[in-house]
Design a protein around this nucleic acid. Sequence first.
RNA 1: GCGCCCCUAGCUCAACGGUAGAGCAGCAGAUUCUUAAUCUGCAGGUUCCUGGGUUCGAGUCCGGGGGGGCGCACCA
Length: 503
Amino acid sequence: MGESSDEGTDASVLESLSADRRNKRDALAREGIDPYPVRFDRTATAAELHRRHDGLDPDVRTGDQVRMAGRLTSIRGHGKLSFATLQDVTGSVQLLMQATTLTEQATAVLANLDLGDWVGAEGEAVTSRRGELSVDVTDLHLLSKALRPLPDKWHGLAATDTRYRQREIDLLANPESRRVFDIRFNTIASLRRQLVAEDFVEVDTPILQPQAGGALARPFLTHANALDIDLSLRIAPELYLKRLVVGGYERVFEIARNFRNEGVDTRHSPEFTALEAYRAFGDVHDGMDLTERLVIEAARSAAGRLTFTVGGRDVDLAGPWPRRPLLDWLEQVVGRRLHPSDPVEEVRAVCDAHGVGTLPEWGSGKLIFELYDTVLLPTVTDPVFVVGFPVEVSPLARHSKDDPMLADRFELAIDAKEFANGYSELNIPEEQQQRFVGQAEAVARGDLEAHPADLAFVRALEYGLPPTSGIGIGVDRLVMLIAEVEAIRDVILFPMMRPEASA
RNA sequence: GCGCCCCUAGCUCAACGGUAGAGCAGCAGAUUCUUAAUCUGCAGGUUCCUGGGUUCGAGUCCGGGGGGGCGCACCA
């Protein structure tokens, strides 16, 4: 927001609201009540209390003495009787506070309470006359003071930049935001659980790399002072993971934060999360099988269903998902069989006819890929595996046994977006070397996104990479689908933003 | 990068170019069954910043700057 806001110059209102809260805190301290106690022993969460006592008649005393802790989200003073809502990680429970039965300390704390304060409450589980499960509080502890007022309890927090910059209050004020991130973490937990169950080992590989490989993208650059060398932030963990397979880890995966120095929009974040998994002795078909299992089970586990609606479009994840050869599908749509071996001018003409923008240095394979990306992909809603991509745009994938210009590679398309990618890994060192040379020529032509030659990787292949199936899944996009949100920023806790105005 | 839109009280939002308002939150009071509690009263503002003008008058219209959103292009 405005910027003269540091230094306390804009001050007035917020300052006085905070001053009130500060004064209450200090008042308690003067009465000998520590406003920042070091610990509190909780004996029950809100969910546990509801589990134990839901369904009781009104005005019942259970005899169950509990100590609850959480944040105060609502206070309804009623003279000598007050109601409050205490919210913890599991849910919320009502506090019922009667002046006649509160301890002296509880009375003092209650008098100096504000919305947003962390409190610990001791008392008996009862139901109110209206039948709501409540804690009939006898003692009350301030656990930490909220010196700043929370957003509107009913309308929540709507200002988008505040939601992203101060995610903590977005989570506090907007249950919807909390729901989305619960789904995110459940999704990731499910992916991890499944892979571990299938004997994959979770590993971690370098984020700072001498050269960023494993994908085609512009990297972020940085510098290591100790070695006086330039480094890139990784754009994909692929090459290191395959080196681990060379080293004998037959099944590995990494849930990797990747960094790409490219556009920021609803579907792209410079910092995003990918799952990559490699499995020795498998091929591209095993990769598709694994991808389908992982995605379906993640959706079931995190959302409890397989149908989702995003932006008015219905997506059904129920399998098995169709597998469509790219060239067949393209033929149906453009009315002509294309192949990477076709003369560039002819493929380019098809691109022109379908309004696909091209660059002069692109070969037939790249042009075919662009046709897929801009003509075919946007028509997808339910999941489809597209198989058989030009080798020209797949520098790390094995060529197909019966067509050396096509790679044994799939992309998983859902809702007009690429969700996953995978292939039979190229494990022939000389061919990998040759592919890198081809990419180097692209660099020479000015292509900023060609794959750099990685000699350490080729050397690793020379020690022998077994036949290997590899997959990569875009975790953020998967979460967007399962949580039914349209902006990638809504599934990333702290998305990249310009810094707030400096003091 | 280009185009369109937005920025008003702590929060959510009003104000044909005409004295900046409401709800919630806050403060004071009433209230032992509320749960968006209710009732009475009070207070709360450099309208993101900055400069100029149609002019008597700018939150509103124009220029510059800042932040954000959406769309297009590149990308996953």
